[in-house]
């Protein structure tokens, strides 16, 4: 997690994470539930515009899109053949469902629109700030904890796992398709789990010793400015228009 999208000083980077979270949630929900091509295409254009506003370098963004579209590729391969419906065209000996193609195209448009929106709106804030913003928006405290702490400890848990794997490799462990390999990986995962649990206990102790009583008090009260209000109102109006496009 290098948070490289959070580095920058664009119009969107400077917006308060609270405004961005609300805007992203609204936009993503409208795009996700709609089954209209107009809405899907418009949200894709909107997503691209937002991305343009972030002034992020294109290459890493395209890499992410490539990753997500490797999933939609499977839909293109399977849906036209399995979706059924009433209209078909024959490609060679295969009957290809027109509705299946439609659905695959719709899902692809929506997926890309949503990913672009999330990169542009949420990717431009640091995870820590998003966590605190979620807390201020009265999201369940435990979920915010999980977000903040996963962010802090995922590396360390991974390092612990790597250390165990290295220890196994040092003793000439080579994974093969044997019960010995499966058992060893079972031990490695199990041991990582136990170590993470022990670490969680120690971290919790450290927190209690410093007066923690179940409530994280955020240090930086991010200031919500008029610009954020303008931004959020614009975004919500655009979302409302997007929702209305469904009924055209």
């Amino acid at each position: 997690m290098d948070e490289r999208f959070a580095q920058g000083d664009s119009l969107l980077h400077r917006r308060d994470p609270k405004a961005k979270i609300i805007a992203a949630m609204a936009l993503v929900s409208v795009a996700a539930v709609s089954d209209s091509f107009i809405v899907a295409t418009t949200s894709l254009v909107l997503g691209m515009t937002l991305l343009f506003l972030t002034k992020l370098p294109l290459q890493p963004v395209l890499k992410r899109l490539l990753a997500i579209n490797s999933f939609t590729l499977f839909l293109w391969l399977t849906l036209p053949l399995t979706y059924g419906g009433s209209k078909f065209v024959a490609i060679g000996p295969l009957p290809v469902s027109i509705e299946g193609l439609h659905i695959a195209a719709l899902i692809t448009l929506k997926t890309n629109a949503i990913v672009l929106t999330i990169i542009a709106l949420l990717g431009t804030s640091k995870i820590a700030n998003l966590g605190h913003a979620l807390e201020t928006l009265h999201f369940p405290e435990k979920l915010c904890f999980i977000l903040l702490f996963s962010y802090r400890y995922v590396f360390i848990i991974y390092q612990e796992y790597r250390r165990l794997v290295r220890a196994a490799q040092m003793r000439c462990f080579v994974p093969t398709t044997t019960i010995h390999t499966y058992r060893t990986f079972g031990y490695l995962f199990g041991m990582t789990l136990v170590q993470s649990w022990n670490r969680a206990t120690r971290v919790h102790r450290a927190m209690i010793l410093r007066g923690f009583d179940g409530h994280l008090i955020p240090l930086s009260q991010s200031r919500y400015t008029t610009k954020d209000t303008v931004f959020l109102s614009t975004m919500l109006s655009l979302t409302a228009i997007l929702a209305l496009l469904n009924f055209l």
Binding site: K126, I127, A128, F149, Y151, R152, R199, R202, V203, A206
Partner: peptide, 13 residues
Amino acid sequence: SSDDQLFSPTVIE
């Protein structure tokens, strides 16, 4: 272990 003691994302926090 300091990793057990430093749980906030940034030093100041």
